[in-house]
Amino acid sequence: MSAELPTVEELATQLQAVSGADEVDVDAALLQLSDVDSLDLMEWLYGFQNQYPHIPADESLFKDIDDSTTLRTVHQRLLDLVPAAG
């Protein structure tokens, strides 16, 4: 199932598209990305939910977001959700 998930680099490209950011560093803290805010993350998540309806990703992906949370962290959380989706 994990093969169906986008790579972390693909997630970055998706987030760039919805936010208009010039670049999204997958290892930078999400809170420090100057052109990405929480509504951009929700817009990205809405698109993800539509594209991968079998993966139970929701806003809790970002629930405990802090300065250590990167896009790579989020990607790992998505990977962790895949077995639960059956």
């Binding site: 929480s38 509504l39 993350l41 929700m42 817009e43 998540l45 809405y46 939910q49 929701d58 806003e59 970002f62």
Partner: peptide
């Protein structure tokens, strides 16, 4: 408000 939830569900 939980702005993230509202955004997602408002759009949906």
């Amino acid at each position: 408000i939980n702005g993230n939830e509202i955004y997602l569900n408002a759009v949906r």
